[in-house]
Design a protein around this nucleic acid. Structure first.
Length: 486
RNA sequence: GCCUAGCUAGCUCAAUCGGUAGAGCAGUUGACUCUUAAUCAAUUGGUUCGGGGUUCGAGUCCCCGGCUGGGUACCA
């Protein structure tokens, strides 16, 4: 017996344990029972044409509604497809089976078989002839009408949330479908899915604080990965010239509506492509998901705002957006002091100790990003913001990259990947000077063997799921979000 | 990290000025062989998140702690 059971023993619990004991002493163990489930609820309902057909089905699931009318009962079973109604009548199942059955509870898992019919009120129902108890539930489920609303319990006991809240169940199903369709899409474009280490010596590819852990066998510390980038680029060096990984990364930073310490990242690398190729790939991928999973190119946020993902998406350079927001065509030739002055005129709070480029980026993050609700590729960001991308050939102050913003947040950055080992080292050294990220010298060594020119892209799957499911919080898209021990 | 709100029966929620902690669902017992939050009758169930304090008396007021929500900061 588990700890929760011992701690929270209640009368309700005791009653059900007693029912279980009685079953066992009469020679029946519900946990050893089995059932030949031939149909899901949806499949069964789909088979119905007319009452006269007497279409036989065999279903199984959890009892979520139990309406007892004496010598007949209506109940509803929940299975992976949803709900199906059963009509269990004494005359149909026999007296002794019926008496046993009446002791079953909401929450129990059972099987039922018999012909389909339609009730007076038009609901396709199983006229149950054979029933079996498959697992006894010892705890009462949350209330049927309101479901589980306590946010903490919904997260800590997600299984209860999934049983009671259809919305929650649907959102999680949608997430699995999104993952499946991403794989389908990339496989169809000849990308290979690979797995690279989560335990690393150097956490590279992003500027984030890593989780540190210790390995006993080697008696040394490891860090949990914060991105997939540097290992996937090693794969490019190794000749896997279309490659992706879909996996968890870990960042030891704050939690918020948009941040969970572990989250799912997709990174894609395509040799002989560049950031423009990634634009097409990203748009095609999202369109594919819209078609296969959402069934629409428009998604509606909880507040009613509609985001249109169809067609081509807006493209704007970082510089143009900044100039538009500051209404200052000369912004990029102003001194830092002039920029700060303009910021205060615009009512933007900016830390005066920031470096010049960071002041500008603050303007972007505070004034521009939140306004980019419809999909927008923001291109050519300043070179200081990323050490891993190629400089633009006509304007060496900016990078050949885009950041895709939708719903007021960054969904996916993509680069023309830096493959010059000298420039790469130089960029890293600058970053290290700013204590931004540790240098992965083994990665630099790999680059020296030659990495093909490539486009690369990273997609925050959780944020994409927020967008596509209309969720308002990252925790609504993660089955078991990070929580403090209770 | 900071600000703010919440925590009462298994679940969803009440409880006036500090004065016997209530209801619905679930449970138990009974009635009902087409119900839809089924209905009807009766009924069980409480360490009010934990600890301390003020008071004749605390769910309610004060202090400390825990967990959670919302906001904010950090986060390429």
């Amino acid at each position: 017996m588990n700890e929760i059971a011992v701690e929270n023993t209640s009368d309700l619990y005791a009653v059900r344990v007693q029912k279980l004991e009685e079953m066992r002493s009469s020679g029946f163990d519900p946990f050893r029972a089995n059932w030949d489930q031939k149909h899901t609820s949806a499949e069964a309902i789909g088979l119905y044409k007319r009452d006269e057909d007497q279409t036989e089905v065999s279903v199984a699931g959890r009892i979520v509604i139990f309406r007892d009318m004496g010598k007949a009962c209506f109940l509803k079973l929940l299975d992976r497809d949803g709900l199906i109604q059963l009509y269990v009548k004494k005359d149909e199942v026999g007296e002794s089976a019926y008496l046993d059955f009446k002791k079953w509870d909401i929450g129990d898992i059972m099987g039922a078989s018999g012909p389909l019919f339609k009730t007076k009120t038009g609901e396709v129902t199983v006229r149950t002839q054979k029933i079996g108890l498959l697992s006894k539930s010892l705890r009462s489920l949350p209330e049927k009408w309101h479901g589980l609303v306590d946010e903490e319990q919904r997260l800590r006991q997600r299984y209860l949330d999934l049983i009671t809240n259809q919305e929650s169940r649907n959102r999680m199903i949608m997430r699995t479908k999104i993952l499946q369709e991403i794989r389908q899409f990339l496989w169809s474009r000849d990308f290979r899915e690979v797995e690279t280490p989560m335990l690393q010596n150097v956490a590279g590819g992003a500027a984030a604080r890593p989780f540190v852990t210790h390995m006993n066998a080697l008696d040394c510390d490891f860090v949990m990965r914060i991105s997939l980038e540097l290992y996937l680029k090693r794969m490019l060096v190794g000749g896997f010239d279309r490659v992706f990984e879909l996996g968890r990364v870990f960042r030891n930073e704050g939690l918020s509506r948009r941040h969970n310490p572990e989250f799912t990242m997709l990174e894609v690398y395509q040799a002989y492509s560049d950031f423009r190729g990634m634009m097409d790939l990203m748009r095609d991928m999202v369109h594919h998901i819209c078609e296969k999973v959402i069934g629409s190119y428009q998604v509606t946020r909880p507040d009613g705002v509609v985001i249109d993902l169809s067609g081509n998406w807006r493209e704007a350079t970082y510089k143009d957006l900044i100039i538009e927001a500051t209404k200052d065509p000369q912004w990029f030739s102003r001194s830092k002091e002039e920029k700060l002055k303009r910021c205060s005129e615009l009512g933007i709070q900016v830390d005066p100790n920031l470096e010049d480029f960071a002041v500008t980026n603050d303007v972007f993050e505070k004034c521009i990003e939140p306004t980019l609700i419809q999909p927008t590729f923001v291109t050519h960001i300043p070179k200081e913001l990323c050490p891993l991308a190629k400089l633009n050939q006509t304007d060496s102050s900016v990078l050949d990259v885009f950041e895709l913003c939708i719903n007021g947040q960054e969904i996916a950055p993509a680069y023309s990947e830096q493959n010059d080992p000298f420039i790469q080292r130089e960029m890293f050294e600058k970053q290290v000077g700013d204590e931004k990220q540790e240098m992965d010298t083994d990665f630099l060594h790999a680059l020296e063997y030659g990495m093909p020119p490539a486009g690369g892209m990273g997609v925050g799957i959780d944020r994409l799921t927020i967008l596509l499911t209309g969720a308002s919080n990252i925790r609504d898209t993660i089955l078991f979000p990070t929580l403090k021990a209770n």
